[in-house]
Design a binder for these strands. Structure first.
Length: 594
RNA sequence: GCGCCUGUAGCUCAGCUGGAUAGAGCAACGGACUUCUAAUCCGUGGGUCGCAGGUUCGAAUCCUGCCAGGCGCGCCA
């Protein structure tokens, strides 16, 4: 409010003086109370272009501002201080007017107006559906969902997307693992392949499948069991003996065999079935778990559809036709070096199989075809080496740089009594999202996972998190909300919220601090949305809650004069609405009582 | 070796893209409930902002070089 006023005066001033550009006015909140409510270092920055001393400039601007009627009404005092700061002390009227504006906004306080926004696609979580979600996924889930909520509230059009990596070798291994557990449930001695998934959850999947299909696939799997019993060397001709699987290697290796199961139409059919059905069941579980966590998606996109639908071949051919891709050494490469990558990247391997990169290109082409103008991907830090090539690829596809925005989230370290542990899906050594939620609840988990900057590696000690759950900052914020709800329950019905006139209205520093905080909410939303930093909403919520708790301690709402009661009730309602909004943006509930 | 992220109080982290004497929570200590919820509030102690230069009126913030930690650098996904 004051910012615009000052900006207007500065613009006019700059024009009169013939300065090339009117500087953008930024008001900041001084650390020192004696420095007033707002301050601006503008004149110090202006000193160079104006070629005059900052203090002289400040004095001139002070005089110009004081001549403005609006300024005279809203600002009690303007002072020149220090090396050339301009300090503003607001009048009581300014607080009342600010409150009136926020009351008028109602539940929409802070909501961004829909600007000329591109249609944004936000993709996150995106995993192989072959294991439970761990806390690392949980962190990205919480971050991405909060970012979605924040951007949407800030005025952007955002569509949420989950990319299902349901194609390739990992899923073959998963399918065989499910098949093996299924066979075992019939007492058939078929071990889970060494390069497969050993976790207990695979048994659950197998049991569900058995319930659906009975013993339909048992004969085929008996063949496999028989071959396995005969030893690896007994595999049918053409089937190379499997290289020993790298037990520690999560990703597996293209050169390693999936397993040494015999090649037989019935076996292939069974494996294909278990892969597909197992994948679907895992996905159902994930969707359910994410929904329980408050995270939903508009689109679940299957990688397999790109391979079977011909989209992948089409995009590769297109790139070849356009000269962006070329053939060399039996493989097809994309010339990503033309767009800033260090080396060109393979699309189709010498053996004819497409790379993951090629599928990703087809996927992003699909997003562009669906009309999205800006693509945001949230990846873990372990994939950041992949960013330049993907940026290059999307630039080639879209014809303009900057279409793809990759946000790199740092990882979650799992600690146990201060000791760092390595998470491993295969060994089952990990904390799942479900375990975290069971330990501390959805609200605390979401707040905990999103309150730190995504650029920061997060240390998680489950035992400690559980122990400290009652100290989680989320309760501090929720408590403020519950306290306001309690006031609303107790206040006499004849007290109506209203901004009354009078010298006692919004006169205390506690009310004023709260109002100033509330006023900065809209800016906080814009800033944290633009900078993709939802953790700032968490920080803001804590500060707002602190301002409220102090207000609550010093200012009573019930049992004071009618003018004060009405005004403070209005302040409580606005505060409640903003706390509610903050919590909602983070996917956390706002209880009416605690 | 190269690239990205990080280094701020005993611990966990903020620090609003350069502002005035660097903040919060936890932990430690001392206070405050006959009044709208004490899951709260008030106070005390606690710092070479990794180190060294540079840019300027002014640097935790920007640049360079070191040091330390994490993550990457495939015809893997």
């Amino acid at each position: 409010m004051i910012t615009e006023l000052v900006q207007r005066v500065v613009d006019r001033w700059a024009e009169e003086q013939g300065w090339a550009e009117a500087p953008a006015v930024r008001l900041e909140r001084p650390a020192e109370e004696a420095h007033g409510d707002y301050a601006t270092p503008l004149c110090m920055q202006l000193a160079r272009t104006a070629k005059r001393a900052p203090k002289i400039l400040a004095e001139e601007l002070q005089a110009r501002l004081q001549a403005e009627p609006d300024v005279a009404r809203l600002v009690e005092r303007i002072e020149v201080a220090g090396p050339g700061f301009l300090n503003f002390t607001l009048s009581g009227t300014a607080y009342s007017e600010a409150m009136a504006a926020m009351v008028a906004d109602g539940a929409d306080i802070g909501r961004g107006t829909m600007r000329e926004h591109p249609h944004v696609n936000l993709e996150w979580v995106s995993v192989n559906p072959n294991g439970p979600l761990h806390v690392g996924h949980g962190r990205y889930a919480a971050y991405g969902d909060a970012l979605y909520r924040l951007m949407t509230f800030g005025g952007s059009r955002v569509s949420r997307e989950f990319y299902i990596n349901d194609y390739g070798r990992q899923m073959d291994r998963f399918g065989r693992s499910v098949a093996a557990r299924y066979a075992q449930s019939f007492e058939v001695d078929l071990p889970v392949p060494a390069d497969g998934y050993q976790g207990e959850y695979v048994k659950d999947v197998a049991a569900t499948v058995r319930g659906e299909v009975g013993d339909t696939y048992l004969p085929a799997l008996r063949l496999v069991a028989a071959a396995a019993a005969a030893g690896p060397g007994a595999a049918p001709a053409g089937q190379a003996a499997a290289a020993p699987a790298e037990a520690e290697d999560e990703e597996g290796d293209e050169t390693a065999a999936v397993s040494d199961w015999p090649s037989d139409p019935a076996v292939d059919e069974a494996v294909a079935f278990f892969r597909k059905r197992g994948c679907d069941l895992m996905l159902d579980g994930m969707r359910e778990e994410l929904e329980g966590f408050g995270v939903a998606f508009d689109t679940w996109f299957s990688e397999t559809t790109l391979h079977v639908g011909g989209a992948l071949e089409r995009v590769v051919k297109d790139l070849l036709d356009k000269g962006e891709a070329f053939e060399e050494g039996g493989a097809i490469w994309l010339r990503t070096t033309s767009r800033g990558d260090d080396k060109d990247r393979v699309l189709i391997r010498g053996n004819g199989r497409p790379t993951y990169f090629a599928a990703d290109i087809a996927y992003h082409e699909n997003k562009l075809e669906r009309g999205f103008e800006h693509l945001i991907n949230i990846w873990g830090a372990d994939h950041h080496g992949y960013v330049p090539r993907m940026n290059a690829a999307v630039e080639i596809l879209s014809g303009r740089p900057g279409t793809l925005e990759v946000i790199i989230g740092q990882l979650v370290n799992l600690l146990e009594q201060g000791e760092l542990k390595q998470m491993s899906t295969r060994r089952g050594e990990m904390v799942t999202l479900g375990e975290l939620v069971d330990a501390i609840g959805v609200d605390a988990a979401r707040f905990f996972l999103v309150m730190r900057s995504h650029d920061q590696t997060l240390d998680l000690d489950l035992a400690l998190a559980q122990q400290q759950s009652s100290e989680n900052s989320v309760y501090y914020v929720q408590y403020a909300h519950a306290r306001i709800a309690s006031i609303l329950r107790n206040i006499p019905a004849e007290t109506k919220p209203a901004i009354e006139a009078g010298p006692e209205v919004f006169a205390s520093p506690y009310e004023r601090a709260l109002i100033k905080r509330l006023e900065s909410f809209a800016w906080t939303v814009q800033d944290s949305a633009d900078r993709r930093m939802p953790h700032r909403i968490a920080a803001f919520a804590q500060e707002l809650a602190a301002d409220f708790h102090v207000f609550y301690k010093h200012c009573r709402v019930i049992g004071v004069s009618p003018a004060l009661a009405s005004s403070r009730l209005a302040l409580c309602l606005v505060t409640k609405a903003v706390i509610f909004r903050c919590l909602e943006l983070l996917g956390v509930s706002a209880p009416e009582s605690m």
